[in-house]
């Protein structure tokens, strides 16, 4: 276990030494979810607020346009969620219509149907 996690610890050390520098995130006024995925053909956000794209609504079919993120020219996909009412919401990215992906730059996690997903807390 310890040996296998060496890769992760090394990455953190490299980061703290300044050898890896984080890229700037797209700036916006509201609460944005951001994913760097320049080669993806589509990225959606499925979450508690949109019935997981329709997965837990009558029919259980994911709407291909639900929670659709916008791609900027640099390859960042963004979605403004500042309109949500205050509370905790679980969410996950759906990349290329099939790949569930936890938000890599959000340290808060929860569970949904056996998957580790991300958690966002919207202030009132």
């Amino acid at each position: 276990m310890t040996g296998r996690m060496t890769v992760g610890v090394s990455a953190l050390l490299l980061c703290s030494c300044g050898l890896m520098r984080p890229v700037e995130r797209p700036q916006s006024e509201g609460v944005d979810l951001v994913l760097w995925m320049p080669g993806a053909s589509s990225v959606q956000v499925l979450g508690d607020w949109n019935e997981w794209g329709g997965l837990v609504a009558a029919g259980g079919v994911i709407d291909p346009l639900a929670g659709m993120m916008s791609r900027n020219p640099e390859g960042f996909w963004t979605l403004d969620i500042s309109h949500l009412e205050g509370g905790s919401y679980r969410y996950s990215f759906l990349v290329n219509g099939h790949g569930w992906l936890r938000d890599p730059v959000n340290p808060l996690t929860s569970e949904f149907q056996g998957r580790t997903v991300s958690l966002v807390m919207i202030p009132d």
Partner: peptide
């Protein structure tokens, strides 16, 4: 821990250790 660096590399590290010996990373 997670980061996207200026070279376009995305890092994502997750580790859970429980006192009963269970762990996942």
């Amino acid at each position: 821990a997670g980061m996207v660096d200026r070279e376009g590399v995305t890092w994502d590290i997750m580790l859970d250790i429980f006192v009963d010996g269970d762990h996942r990373g």
